[in-house]
Write a protein that binds this DNA or RNA. Structure first.
Lengths: 251, 251
DNA sequence: CAAGTTCCAGTCGCACTGACCCTAACCATG
DNA sequence: CATGGTTAGGGTCAGTGCGACTGGAACTTG
């Protein structure tokens, strides 16, 4: 607790109300240029059978960050998320019908969750497109729709001010892969040539490896493979001032 | 609480640990071009006699936002903060020596706290320069140094993406007052003419009232008074890509 | 070899902005 | 009233960052 100038009427600070504290993790990854979120199916009431974000109780002996890290390992088996950032706390009185629960939301970005989901209880965990959740095509338990929405908002900001973009791709990647991350999260269409210029012009963003990627099934010139540089900590190289939204084709 | 795939070994989910949940409010205002934070002096142990951020317990019947709003009223008597934004949660096990406490940090911006502090227990509340807290010239209780630091970081970001700037000034203001907000929070020196151009060029940021301010004690042409427009919700007009840091004179 | 696809390099032009200058409108002093 | 100091407001100029576009390079398949 903190300081108060005086107890409000009818309220005794020594009898503080007890809450359960949990951490919920919005795990994002990119599959075929589409942003996906890891959901698990609830096995217990309330909301039994519904999709939900993984999460669990915070223990008294650990910090919130440690709780998030531990839950991520327990749910996915991955102990090295490329990004694990707290983005919000949620404490509406009726958000859990059983008791008073305050939850802290964390955003995690993984680059390959395929093996991860198999490692967990495969029947209960699944990657679904984020758009399906936001469009309510897939209903999620509790206030998890709001939590996912705010997590994606946070990802959009992080993309601009930090090096989160490289967290979605492998240790080596093509500029097209990196560009797809920006296009998927911001929902914009970026010119490939201009994107390249912004990234390659200044030193420190990407480091050419000299190797080339496998050409795609449709042919085309093979792309140079890059590694991430060290400049990603002080603000991203690409800015979202592009006013041109991507017109979604009716795929 | 949320969903878990299975209880971890040696841990029974039905016996969840109990936490106290509080909200702490970093109240910022601007006095003579310097960013100030409202601190109160603790009257009880632990940290008795030290400065701290105002805050208090969340009640089971209210949301976190409502708790922050209520605490703001109780501490300052002001129920109309121009901005009240959650920016982080803090739950280190040893952050409070008495019990397990998770606190949620809120950032509030007031335009005139002078009368506000008097309304509260004047001997115990005071506005101090944020720089004194960040430089540890003034020690604060608990982990409140970290909380203030992250609140100011958040204010810097909000300044760029939202209309927080107008929250520091009155309903009518001069462009010099508005510019001082940016300069104080970002720690930069902005060219007055270029600032004017950026604000006035596009419609919707500021609306001229036709009236003029009182000239300052040193003379000078009186400035036009403006009202805030409606464009502040979709990203601020000024961006922090200025590389020129302000060299602090040895005042 | 031809056609299609993707990557990469370069050019053009606009818009934004940092730096700077000048005038307008006020005050203080003599 | 004259002069100098101070701040507001309007303008110019040059650099630069970026969107739009073009064309060549390096692959594929048929």
């Amino acid at each position: 607790m903190t300081t108060r100038t005086g107890p409000p009427a009818g309220y005794d600070p020594s009898q503080f109300p007890a809450f359960a504290v949990t951490v919920d993790i919005v795990i994002l990854t990119m599959i075929d240029g589409e942003l996906q979120v890891l959901l698990i199916r609830r096995g217990e009431d309330p909301f039994k059978g519904m999709w939900a974000i993984p999460g669990g109780f915070k223990r008294p002996t650990e910090t919130l960050d440690e709780a998030a890290q531990r839950e991520l390992v327990e749910e996915t088996g991955v102990d090295a998320a490329r990004l694990l950032t707290q983005f919000g706390a949620y404490g509406d009185p009726d958000r859990d019908p059983r008791m008073n629960v305050v939850t802290v939301g964390y955003l995690a970005v993984l680059r390959d969750v395929g093996a991860v989901v198999a490692g967990s209880d495969a029947a209960d965990a699944s990657l679904v497109p984020v758009s399906d959740v936001l469009n309510e095509k897939i209903d999620v338990a509790f206030d998890h729709l709001q939590i996912v929405r705010e997590a994606v908002d946070r990802a959009r900001v992080e993309l601009e001010v930090s090096g989160i973009a490289t967290a979605f791709v492998g240790t080596t990647f093509t500029l097209a892969e990196l560009r797809a991350v920006y296009e998927a999260i911001w929902g914009v269409q970026l010119d490939a040539a201009n994107f390249r210029r912004s990234i390659v012009a200044a030193d420190g963003w990407v480091i050419p490896t000299g190797r080339r990627s496998q050409p795609g099934v449709t042919g085309g010139r093979p792309a140079e493979l890059y590694r991430a540089g060290r400049a990603w900590r002080q603000g991203g190289p690409i800015h979202a001032r592009s006013t041109k939204r991507r017109e979604e084709p009716g795929r």
